[in-house]
């Protein structure tokens, strides 16, 4: 695997990179009120590889949606590098997310009409952090990083699940965000590919990125340096090492 391009976008801070303070999330449904998160307090430092593990319905996906700004807390505060994410408007949170958090989904969520190269370029297009002339080159370098340079002009449907996930990781790195958030990244992959993907995350952490990974797979979770267990909307254990 080719070395990661040198990144400048690592947040130099001595304080915790991510802080959640009494975060509560409730959902209203036909069946009544559901408490997905019940007063979560959590701090994550920079360049940590964190796994969040729990059963179905434990609140782990909701928790990571709070961190990425994809969902908003019912109450509580979320600070990411001193940005009060919970106070950002919809427009601002989208821009903030494009610059700060690279999201990798369980089902890849690549745009089917675009090639891999175009999918990787898309976040750069929205955030304008890189000059237009450099974007294709950067996207190609990222695809090379994940071993997909030869498939750059193929569409997602022409590739296996593993390769699609690698392409999704390349897309998440497009704007060189300091944080990578991923929900069940290996849920649809075979063990060999899953191993490859986790290896990539480890490399990113070595480069100074903070990787937060939600998983229900204990074996995958063990690969993270810090392992958080969540059940019934509450953190029940938080282990490092």
């Amino acid at each position: 695997m080719i070395a990661l391009p040198q990144t400048a976008n690592t947040l130099q801070t001595d304080t915790q990179l991510i802080r959640l303070v009494q975060v509560v999330k409730t959902f209203q449904s036909g069946a009544g009120v559901f408490h997905a998160l019940r007063g979560i307090n959590l701090e994550i430092a920079q360049a940590q590889f964190v796994s969040i593990m729990g059963k179905s319905g434990s609140g782990k996906s909701t928790l990571i949606n709070m961190l990425t700004g994809i969902d908003r807390p019912t109450s509580g505060e979320i600070y990411i590098a001193d940005t009060a994410v919970h106070r950002l408007s919809d427009s601002d949170v989208a821009r903030w997310r494009g610059e700060t958090v690279g999201v990798v989904f369980q089902f890849f969520q690549l745009l089917p009409a675009l090639s891999l190269l175009e999918n990787v370029r898309l976040p750069m297009d929205f955030c304008d952090l890189f000059p237009r002339a450099e974007r294709s080159e950067r996207a190609m370098a990222l695809l090379e990083l994940v071993g997909l340079a030869d498939e750059a002009h193929k569409k997602p449907a022409q590739l296996s699940g593993g390769k699609q996930q690698c392409a999704a990781i390349a897309r998440a790195l497009a704007n060189d965000p300091p944080i990578i958030a991923t929900d069940e990244p290996t849920g649809n992959l075979d063990s060999a590919t899953a191993n490859q993907v986790i290896g990539l995350f480890e490399k990113l952490v070595e480069q100074g990125k903070t990787v937060i990974m939600v998983t229900h797979d204990a074996e995958v979770a063990q690969r993270a340096v810090r392992r958080i267990q969540i059940a019934d909307g509450q953190i029940v254990s938080d282990r490092s090492g």
């Binding site: 994809i70 997310r97 494009g98 969520q109 929205f126 955030c127 897309r171 998440a172």
Partner: peptide, 13 residues
């Protein structure tokens, strides 16, 4: 869904 993804990767409304 694609709109959701686009917003997740940084697109403003």
């Amino acid at each position: 869904r694609q709109i959701g993804i686009l917003r997740a990767i940084g697109a403003r409304r």
